[in-house]
């Protein structure tokens, strides 16, 4: 699945961005420079980014501007970040947070 808006009737085309590879739960995904983790994963049709720490229910991007913290993920097995605010880079390793293992908060 690829959900990019390369051509927009008003905003014009956006086709010249550099492609990078990111890893989500160990699997490689294509992304573009300038993407956030959230936009890169959504472009690939991946909606669920973490599990609720108690119920284990799947959660994904809700507000997309850093207010709700629903999209938080672990980067490089170290930092917990908001996927919607964090820009990707080539080789970035991202992992879902699952129930009762929230990493370094």
């Amino acid at each position: 699945m690829r959900m990019r808006v390369d051509h927009h009737p008003v905003l014009g085309k956006q086709t010249d961005r550099k492609q990078v590879t990111i890893f989500f739960n160990g699997k490689p995904y294509d992304a573009y420079e300038g993407d956030t983790i959230a936009s890169a994963m959504m472009a690939q049709g991946v909606y669920a980014l973490r599990q609720h720490e108690v119920s284990g229910n799947a959660r994904g991007v809700y507000c997309n501007i850093g207010h709700c913290y629903e999209c938080r993920v672990k980067v490089e097995d170290r930092k917990v970040v908001r996927a919607c605010l964090t820009t990707v880079y080539h080789g970035m390793e991202i992992d879902s947070l699952s129930g009762f293992s929230e990493g370094n908060e």
């Binding site: 956030t36 959504m42 994904g60 991007v61």
Partner: peptide, 25 residues
């Protein structure tokens, strides 16, 4: 409304116009 793929209207706006990603068809 907590199911992945449910988002605020502003989230979809930013996804489409800023990140140039359609949240879906």
């Amino acid at each position: 409304w907590t199911i992945p793929g449910v988002m605020s209207i502003g989230a979809a706006q930013v996804m489409g116009n800023v990140h140039r990603v359609k949240p879906g068809n």
